[in-house]
């Protein structure tokens, strides 16, 4: 392996890039890719606010990591698009870290998602956060997010492909978890960005095979949907 030529590695890189996801992948997430021809992976770094523009916070897992840079680019000059400096993981990780993520800055819009990590199966077959706990955690998160005074948007959890996955997830659970989330958001008057529906029709073209992650075109579609939802709230 040590003798693989650099050129080959570079050629393989685009296929590998979307694999930044679960805790198992952490070593790769933390490192900045700095081959000469490529821009450094800056997605986790803080950004500086451009004065006078509204401040947006994106909260979410690796799917949101994938659309952060395209969203930032699409809203350049229109909004300061921040993200949490990490993979948001399941709701229980959100409730533990939300205060830290929010900091003491003022947010105009907060766009958030939890789900893919909640419905992930653990070694014993249980899900990382079972539906009843997912609902309870979401309610707690929404209550805390409301206190910021920001406009809130919940993004629905994106599809899990059928078949065997690593780490394991079950196709049908997405609908279950989204149903819970939509109920909680409706009760709380939180706007919905239906990312699931945005990618579902063309999912075969957009999603990596046997994976919950997306190719560049997939993240672009997600980013367009996120921007549309953000602009709706920013325009209010």
């Amino acid at each position: 392996m040590k003798t693989l030529p650099l050129g080959l590695l570079l050629a393989l890189a685009p296929f590998a890039q979307s694999a930044e996801a679960d805790p198992a992948a952490k070593p790769a997430e933390r490192v900045t890719v700095t081959a000469k021809a490529k821009a450094p992976n800056t997605v986790m770094l803080p950004i500086l606010d451009v004065a006078g523009l509204p401040r947006v916070l994106l909260i979410g897992d690796s799917i949101s990591i994938g659309y952060t840079l395209p969203v930032r680019k699409l809203l350049a000059g229109k909004a300061n698009v921040h993200r949490i400096p990490t993979n948001g993981g399941p709701t229980k990780n959100g409730t533990a870290n939300l205060t830290k993520w929010l900091g003491d800055g003022k947010w105009d819009v907060i766009h958030f998602n939890f789900g893919l990590h909640d419905l992930r199966h653990m070694d014993d077959g249980s899900r990382q956060v079972e539906p009843a706990d997912y609902e309870r955690n979401l309610r707690s998160l929404v209550a805390d997010l409301k206190k910021t005074g920001a406009k809130l948007i919940f993004a629905t959890t994106t599809p899990v492909p059928e078949g065997k996955l690593t780490p394991p997830r079950t196709f049908g659970d997405v609908a279950t978890y989204n149903e819970i989330a939509l109920k909680v958001m409706k009760e709380n008057g939180v706007a919905i960005d239906d990312l699931n529906t945005a990618v579902a029709p063309e999912i075969a073209k957009l999603q990596n095979p046997h994976d919950v992650h997306y190719n560049a075109a997939g993240y672009e579609v997600l980013a367009q949907a996120v921007v549309k939802a953000l602009q709706k709230e920013l325009g209010k």
Binding site: L9, L12, A13, A16, A19, A25, V33, T34
Partner: peptide, 17 residues
């Protein structure tokens, strides 16, 4: 399978590092 895709990425990082 996921790690199999991840490995070249790690190697790239190693090379770039």
């Amino acid at each position: 399978p996921m790690l199999r895709r991840l490995l070249p990425y790690l190697l790239l990082v190693a090379a770039a590092g």
